[in-house]
Computed example of a mutant assay.
Amino acid sequence: MKKALAELIGTFTLVLFGCGVAVVGGMGDEITTVNLLGIAFAFGLSIVAMGYGIGPVSGCHINPAVSFGVWLAGRMSFGEFIVYVISQVIGALLAAVLLYLILSGKASGWDGGLGQNGWGPDTVGGYDQTSAFLFEVTATFVFLVCILGVTQKGAPNHFAGIAIGLTLVMIHLLGINITGTSVNPARSIGPAVVGMEANPLAVQQLWLFIVAPLIGGGLAGLFFRSGLLGLDED
Rank of each mutant, 00 (worst) to 15 (best):
S58N: 01
G59Y: 09
G59K: 08
G59C: 07
C60H: 15
C60T: 14
C60G: 10
H61S: 11
I62Y: 14
I62K: 12
N63G: 04
P64E: 11
P64I: 08
A65W: 12
A65Q: 10
V66R: 06
V66M: 06
V66C: 08
V66W: 06
S67E: 13
S67N: 12
F68L: 14
F68C: 11
G69T: 01
G69I: 03
G69F: 11
V70E: 11
V70A: 13
W71V: 04
W71E: 02
L72F: 10
L72M: 13
A73F: 09
A73Y: 08
A73K: 05
A73P: 03
A73T: 04
G74S: 10
G74M: 12
M76Q: 14
S77L: 08
S77R: 12
S77F: 08
F78W: 08
F78I: 05
F78N: 02
F78D: 02
G79A: 09
G79Y: 11
G79W: 08
E80H: 14
E80Q: 15
F81M: 13
F81L: 15
F81H: 13
F81G: 06
I82K: 13
I82G: 07
I82F: 15
V83D: 14
Y84D: 03
V85M: 07
V85A: 07
I86C: 11
S87L: 08
S87A: 15
V89Q: 07
V89N: 06
V89G: 07
I90K: 05
I90W: 09
G91Y: 05
G91N: 01
A92M: 01
L93W: 02
L93C: 02
L94Q: 04
A95L: 03
A95E: 02
A96N: 02
A96M: 05
A96H: 00
V97C: 05
V97P: 00
L98V: 10
L98P: 02
L99R: 07
L99D: 03
L99M: 13
L99N: 02
Y100K: 12
L101K: 13
L101S: 09
L101H: 05
L101G: 05
I102T: 07
L103R: 00
L103S: 05
L103Q: 00
S104D: 14
S104L: 05
S104K: 10
G105I: 01
G105H: 03
K106L: 14
K106Y: 15
K106V: 15
A107F: 09
S108R: 10
S108Y: 10
W110A: 04
W110L: 08
D111V: 06
G112N: 07
G112T: 03
G112P: 04
G112A: 06
G113W: 13
G113N: 14
L114R: 03
L114I: 03
L114P: 00
G115D: 03
N117S: 06
N117L: 01
N117T: 08
N117E: 02
N117Y: 06
G118F: 13
G118H: 06
G118E: 09
W119E: 02
W119C: 04
G120H: 02
G120P: 06
P121V: 13
P121M: 11
D122Q: 15
D122N: 15
D122T: 15
D122E: 15
T123Y: 12
T123Q: 11
T123H: 11
T123V: 11
T123G: 13
T123N: 09
V124Y: 14
V124D: 12
G125D: 07
G125W: 08
